[in-house]
């Protein structure tokens, strides 16, 4: 098999055909929409972002959103306490009460706080390790209620018994 001397004229025609085919694929309705809303949009983001502003922490806040901010707000608020476990309200409770909030599952909460704080759900086997209950009002105000005894925890769990703890 031998390599041939390229026929430049014909290769230019094939180049035109390739451009045409690429444009045709791009112009397919779903593809145009996808290119514009995803890769081109990502490219605009890339151009707009300044490297100096793009710290790891900012990227985490932007990507993880409310979950991440809530978890780290709790760490800051309870900074004086050591080995804290907080009891989180069930996501079903927020859904049914129309509260625009969800809480992360305990393992993700631990990850978000870099291991500085643990969380339990109302169905967790470790629920009695909780020292505080984290309440969020419909106005998205945060309340941290101390849980001083087993009875306090039982009372808190009973309050949410109609709201299964799920994602």
């Amino acid at each position: 098999m031998t390599a041939t001397t390229p026929n430049k004229g014909r290769q230019r025609l094939l180049l035109a055909a390739a451009v045409l085919l690429a444009v045709l694929i791009y112009k397919m309705p779903g593809n145009t929409f996808w290119f514009q809303t995803k890769p081109f949009s990502y490219y605009q983001e890339f151009k707009a972002v300044k490297l100096s502003e793009m710290t790891d922490e900012r990227m985490r806040e932007a990507r993880y959103g409310k979950h991440y901010i809530l978890a780290n707000m709790l760490v800051q608020t309870l900074a004086k306490d050591k080995d804290v476990t907080v009891l989180l309200e069930p996501n079903n409770y927020y859904r049914q009460k129309g509260i625009d909030m969800t809480v992360p599952e305990p393992i993700v909460f631990y990850y978000y706080t870099s291991g500085r704080m643990k969380a339990v759900w109302t169905n967790s086997k470790d629920v009695y390790k909780a020292k505080y209950l984290v309440r969020i009002t419909p106005q998205l105000e945060l309340a941290i209620v101390p849980l001083n005894s087993k009875e306090d925890i039982d009372k808190a769990v009973a309050e949410y018994k109609n709201y299964p703890a799920t994602l």
Partner: peptide
């Protein structure tokens, strides 16, 4: 320490 957490919500470990 991850295995010491409440892992009822996941089996991804």
């Amino acid at each position: 320490s991850v295995f010491g957490l409440s892992l009822e919500s996941t089996n991804n470990q």
